[in-house]
């Protein structure tokens, strides 16, 4: 187990290094540079000023040299300076990450709980009334665009009912726990509704298959109670494929939810990464994407380790 974990960690570092090179190169190949973007909104700017700004931001240097300098600094813990926020990258990254954690983990946990309940209930009587209703809900969640869902929720709960704020993270002068919860409610609900459908379908499919297996029949025959058979025997086994899906989803959580964050003016990782790519903020884009990659890789590792726990027959080599 230890050797397996160490080997995977080594692979993770190699993947991160390769990814950093690819991402830096791709952003650098995008047409236009940040000074061009800046110059477009500067009446009266002269070519001399543009050249001076390029030199100050180091954009007059070859791409590879810039990447090498970034890498050397990053290895010493300095992720660089965000040009668009005028702050060190870590100072921009950390608040965004915290906001993403609040938003995404809440919605993820709620989605998983809802999916487990709905998936199991649905699988108990496939084709029944409850299953049909849950399937309808699940497919609606999968197929409805997040953008539209967010707008509907804003129009209902903020515009029509005035129950909840339409956007933002806190009210000016407040910022207390309940204020944050109020501001998170609609974005979390949006993401939860969007994710629950997908997870529910996975849980349902895995449970239906597991409930047909011999060991479940044996458990019934031995007179085990319904709770024990369904939850302890069937669900635990059904979770193996579901955990893979959820681990992958958990990794992508940290790259944020661009549409939801934009609609509800939440300053999370998704929006931060998107904005930094669009504005050629190399250091910030690179750090954000690498962080998302790292979490995805670690989530996969955690999923692999979880298989061993869920099914002791699976050996990690």
């Amino acid at each position: 187990m230890l050797a397996f974990t160490l080997r995977r960690m080594g692979q993770t570092l190699v993947v991160l290094l390769v990814m950093s090179f690819i991402i830096y190169g791709l952003i650098g190949l995008m047409p236009g540079d940040p000074i061009d973007i800046m110059a477009a909104s500067m009446p009266g700017v002269t070519p001399e000023v543009v050249a001076k700004l390029r030199a100050i931001y180091g954009l007059d240097q070859p791409l590879m040299l810039r990447y090498w300098r970034w890498l050397m600094a990053a290895l010493q813990g300095d992720l660089g300076f965000s040009r668009t926020h005028s702050q060190p990258v870590l100072e921009v990254l950390m608040p965004a990450l915290w906001q993403t954690c609040k938003l995404m983990i809440s919605s993820f946990v709620l989605s998983v709980i809802a999916a487990l309940i709905l998936g199991v209930v649905s699988a108990l009587r496939p084709g029944g009334f409850v299953d049909s209703f849950v399937s309808l809900f699940a497919f609606a969640g999968i197929s409805v665009p997040v953008f539209w869902l967010a707008l509907v929720l804003i129009l209902t709960f903020a515009v029509a009912l005035h129950w909840l704020p339409a956007s933002g993270m806190t009210n000016v002068g407040d910022g207390g726990f309940m204020d944050q919860v109020r501001h998170l409610t609609l974005p979390v609900l949006t993401l939860m509704l969007a994710n629950t459908g997908q997870f529910t379908r996975y849980v349902r499919a895995a449970m239906i298959e597991t409930l047909r297996m011999d060991f479940v029949r044996t458990a019934w025959a031995k007179g085990a109670g319904a709770w024990r058979v369904v939850i302890v025997h069937a669900l635990r086994n059904a979770l193996i494929p579901v955990v893979t899906i959820m681990a992958l989803s958990f990794g992508t959580l940290f790259s944020g939810a661009l549409v939801t964050e934009t609609m509800f003016a939440q300053q999370g990782m998704g929006k931060m990464i998107y904005d930094s790519i669009l504005s050629n903020d190399f250091n910030l884009a690179l750090s954000g994407l690498l962080f998302a990659t790292l979490i995805t890789l670690l989530s996969n590792l955690a999923a692999d380790l979880a298989y061993g726990w869920l099914d002791p027959r699976i050996a990690l080599k």
């Binding site: 967010a150 129009l155 903020a158 005035h162 339409a166 934009t262 609609m263």
Partner: peptide
């Protein structure tokens, strides 16, 4: 006076109507 960023203009309109 508060300047509040809402990049999506559809959401910006909804915020205007909700009084946010």
């Amino acid at each position: 006076i508060v300047l509040k960023l809402i990049e999506n203009t559809a959401a910006l309109q909804a915020n205007l109507l909700s009084g946010d």
